[in-house]
Amino acid sequence: MQEPTLLLLTALADEPRHGYALMQEVAEISNGRVRLRTGTLYGALERLQREGMVRVEREEVVDGRARKVYALADPGAVALAEETARLRAVAEEAERRLARRPRPSARGALA
């Protein structure tokens, strides 16, 4: 799973959101590193809908603008949980190995 997809699914994990809110959430979750633009976001949401991972929760009109509110579908939640477990396993293994790494001696650190 590529990072933008992971971030989009994560942004939808707690509650349904509309397009622009998703853009903001993705930027926030990634500390501003990933910024999805309008066309990219829409294309990604279309693809995730086709794959059954995301569904349209409802359509609403705000300030005269029609917009869709997207929600995480069950297959999307499963895929996100699997990806999270995979990343957690990698992170735990990295931490375990780092902990076993010999610490540099004071003399080595000064050298």
């Binding site: 397009g19 853009m23 976001l41 917009r67």
Partner: peptide, 10 residues
């Protein structure tokens, strides 16, 4: 319509 709405906010 929706692309324009997202575009407007973005």
């Amino acid at each position: 319509s929706e692309l324009a709405a997202i575009f407007a906010e973005a």
